[in-house]
Design a binder for these strands. Structure first.
Lengths: 343, 343
DNA sequence: CTGTTAGCGCGTTCAG
DNA sequence: CTGAACGCGCTAACAG
């Protein structure tokens, strides 16, 4: 690692003025030529374009932005950069913007309101055209308020203020769909092992499961077992369930991690999956799903779609077509070997 | 989701001019007052600051940047937003910048050179002060070249051009340290199951393992088993290893996922971990490590540190103290129950 | 068709 | 201690 002073060798940023000079025209003409405006002689345009390429001119978006009042930049304020939710959401947003020319300024507030304010200020200072706010759980989070100079869309965690725009996973429906899949396989004795009751996601999925059972005049086996989003809890809860003598032909796990624990516990007891007991998870989290034996049936919450929709609504809002309210994104059951042999 | 036209209700962006007007001073004075420059009467300053707060004035960084020639923004160009490497690196970079006032513009090129060029152009247009380029594997990647108007630092994947600045994990040393840990426990018959031989990370870790064994006049049991970075490969390779009649007292897995597969296969064969066979992985990837039975000993490659170092070197380069060459970040052995009972 | 002028929001001289 | 004037890179309106 040698230290070198190459600041001097680095080419100075080339401006439109340089291009104009090389092409032998005025700055204004160069501008028009490069932006495809009318009233420029083809020959002149060609000269300007050539000069621009030769100097590898990159227009200064900042200067443009200062005029236009639009920066083509959005702020993405997350609280869960570690988590596996922000990332797909971020990708979805990138997707949606990618086609256009939006760039994403990323900030992680780490669940700290002070940090969030700080970053918010920084983003507004950089004159972002809009904000996407990603929560760390599906529980509602405080609104940034309506006094913002730019529109905001809340993703994953809805805003507590429902005149804000939010895009969230449909956890209730996820519970319903998962349970209907199990019922469609002829399973009638379904137990539900899930994460902490303090999580809205856990409660809503459980409510969906209960609802789907009720629709066919069935009930879940025993109470919903709330615990933590871990494999260890999946194992422990399964053990206690079976030791309690419960007869089950399906276990609905509140997440893929819990499902992995359930599978392990069943395997230890020499119970066959899916013949004896069918198992399902939620999230379709690849590393968990792909390594499971058998491969895990799960519900994909379509985080990427959430990100994409949030981005689309944000763009709409920036263009003046603002929408309010919570949008729930459909989830998808992904059938694999843990519920249907060989699938 | 009701559509509303609230563009009108949204407060117009307030400029320094507004503040000056309210405070009854000129823009120049307002500027000095807010930026803590000398030669401003305390009373005047107070009036200006109050006005700024009342209007919730946010200085326009763009305008500032256009003058200063520095935007306080860096571009992070990744190829692996899905992957679990960019994320910690991104966080480390955020950490390092967070103290200061750098903001991060994020772009995912998805391994597509065209996309990368496109994003690069966009970032340069936004006049980023520097670039961090994150690869998707530890294999060297093509340099962006030296004709860039701003410095670049390559993280995770080094640049093929070693006059560039790169920060990468020390995979060779990781292999050494892991193996030394096993040796220190008295294990002498160590097998190595890892990912595809096409990956530099796999080859280097294997080389480190071989080297550490050689240091104490030992050899790995059998050839290195190259395969894929999956649990399934871990299971399959372990089965074939043991069916081949190999006597091993330790298995070094090339990743935590592979290690999980190894643990499963050993468990199926009623072999005790760590008493019969000690098992180790690489990456210290929490979801894999935390769910393992027993908890998995592994090598943490300190991705966050990589991100932090890349950010620090970038800042140094931006300030003119540019450094060239590849920096290898130390890794750390994290001891848990799969090598030391009860740890 | 092209060049000149003005101004976006701000920081920085330099007179007053 | 304060304010007018200038310039950053660029586009829009107008004049030639």
């Amino acid at each position: 690692m040698a230290t070198t002073e190459d600041a001097t060798t680095r080419p100075r940023t080339v401006t439109l003025r340089d291009v104009a000079q090389v092409a032998g025209v005025s700055v204004a003409t160069a501008s028009k030529a490069l932006n495809g405006r009318d009233n420029v002689h083809p020959d002149t345009r060609r000269r300007v374009v050539e000069a621009a390429e030769r100097l590898s001119f990159t227009p200064n978006s900042l200067a443009k932005a200062i005029l236009a009042g639009q920066t083509g930049t959005v702020g993405l304020l997350t609280n869960d950069l570690e988590g596996r939710f922000s990332l797909p959401i971020l990708m979805g947003a990138e997707d949606a913007f990618g086609a256009g020319q939006m760039s994403v300024l990323l900030c992680d507030a780490r669940e700290d309101a002070i940090r969030e304010q700080y970053h918010l200020k920084a983003l507004l200072g950089r004159r972002v055209d809009g904000l996407i706010v990603v929560g760390s759980s599906t529980d509602p989070r405080p609104s940034l308020g309506h006094a913002l100079p730019v529109p905001a869309v809340y993703a994953y965690a809805p805003s507590t203020d429902d005149t804000d725009a939010s895009v969230v996973p449909d956890n209730l429906n996820a519970g319903v769909l998962a349970t209907q899949h199990l019922i469609s396989l002829g399973r009638t004795r379904v137990a539900h092992i899930t994460g902490p009751e303090t999580y809205a996601a856990a409660r809503e999925r459980a409510a969906g499961a209960r609802e789907a059972m009720l629709d066919v005049n069935l009930e879940l086996v025993g109470p919903v077992r709330y615990g933590s989003w871990t494999e260890a809890w999946g194992r422990a809860a399964t053990d206690s369930l079976l030791e309690g003598g419960a007869e089950v032909d399906a276990i609905l796990a509140g997440s893929d991690q819990i499902a992995r624990g359930v599978l392990d516990a069943l395997r230890d007891r020499r119970l066959d999956v899916p013949d004896d007991v069918a198992v399902m998870g939620f999230d379709n989290w690849d590393p968990m799903v792909a390594g499971a034996r058998p491969l895990l049936t799960t519900v994909d919450m379509n985080f990427k779609t959430i990100g994409r929709r949030a981005a689309q609504r944000l763009v709409a809002a920036i263009e003046g077509r603002s929408t309010a309210g919570v949008e729930r994104v459909e989830c998808t059951v992904v059938v694999r070997g843990s519920t249907v042999r060989g699938a």
